[in-house]
Amino acid sequence: MNFTPELPFAGGRVRPLHYDDVDALFAIYQQPEIPGQRVLDNKDNLTRMVDLSVQMAATQRGMMWLLEVGTDGHYEVQGMVSAYDWQPSQLRTMLRVDGLPALSLQQRAAALKVCMDFMATKYHLRNFGYQWIAGQDDALKGMLEEAGFSLAATLRDGWRTGESSFADVLQYHLLRGEHKPVPGRLGEQDNPGQNLAKSFNSGQNNGGGEA
């Protein structure tokens, strides 16, 4: 069963992880962009990570995409997009992009947008958060604001970078305008669950209520 879709965007695509992506994932984690994040020293955990990416998507706890840049038939892995701390009942999730240095801000923004569009359409998520950690590239903050995120809070020493060192976390949020779902009896709204072939928004009765 497939729970994570492939989604194209201008200049690339995001797609689900596969076992044969372990080398590409290992390359990404050789250049961690989060302060304090260790360089990965073995690939064993990455096979487990591919398993987890399926389990998390199936249970609506998170979703991971490989981020590829290129055009049809010629793609190059440049990073990952992850949704984590997914709270289906609260209609929100956090997002994160881990990119190689060659990944541009425009490509990051485009990948984020296509993932948010999917999760908003498929799962009614309306609130997307992103944490920028002091020490990361300052330009990421501008990218987030241009993409529609707003700074909501600065979490002092919210991220541990070493044995006794910490970094501030700037937490951004983007609130979407889609209608909230309304309760219905089983089958009444052709609830799509994890079935990628169905969507709340594809039919006339989309189950949406007034915001």
Binding site: Q90, L91, R92, H173, L175
Partner: peptide, 16 residues
């Protein structure tokens, strides 16, 4: 120390 307001964190009694 006040650090900010995180929007729409909970869906409670039909309100975000």
């Amino acid at each position: 120390t006040f650090e900010g307001v995180l929007p729409a964190q909970l869906e409670y009694e039909d309100q975000s």
